[in-house]
């Protein structure tokens, strides 16, 4: 019950914020009869209405995991975000190996298989993408080779 209500409130807030920013959309004087604001405002309004339904008639409570699980989800998110930032400056191989190993460890907490998975995936996928599919991946940062 509470989850749906909270979700409803979040949607409501987001929808209102969305409508507010939609009213700020620049309009050129060349604009068409409908204009660039109408649709976003309409979408925001429908979302807001639906969120009210949710607040007043919530479904049953879903099964949430324990706090500790949320902790490991947070770690996973941090790893993925860090990986996203690391891909360009550090090349493909090293960040991929590290990120894949951590994710693997999180799914099944055994260190050695996880580390092997990381290294295996990173090298294997690099070969697949670079040579079989021809994507322009950089294996290591350019500086390594001067």
């Amino acid at each position: 019950m509470a989850s749906d209500r909270i979700f409803g409130l979040v949607v409501l807030m987001t929808a209102l914020a969305y409508i507010a920013s939609a009213t700020q959309i620049q309009t050129s004087f060349l604009a068409d009869p409908v204009g660039p604001k109408a649709f976003p405002i309409l979408v925001g309004a429908v979302a807001a209405l639906s969120s009210l339904v949710l607040i007043f008639r919530p479904d049953d409570e879903p099964e949430w995991p324990a706090i500790r699980t949320f902790g490991s989800l947070l770690v996973a998110i941090i790893v993925l975000v860090g990986y996203a930032y690391a891909l360009r400056p550090f090349g493909f191989i090293v960040p991929t190996a590290i990120a894949a190993a951590i994710l693997s460890y999180q799914i099944s907490p055994r260190a050695l298989p996880a580390a092997l998975t990381g290294v295996g995936l990173s090298v294997g996928l690099f070969l697949l993408f670079k040579y079989a599919l021809g994507l322009g991946l950089v294996p290591f940062p350019k500086e390594f080779f001067g």
Partner: peptide, 15 residues
């Protein structure tokens, strides 16, 4: 096993 498959899927998605 999921601990190989899922990291693999993630990395493929990123690329």
């Amino acid at each position: 096993p999921a601990w190989i498959l899922l990291p693999g899927v993630t990395m493929i998605s990123f690329v």
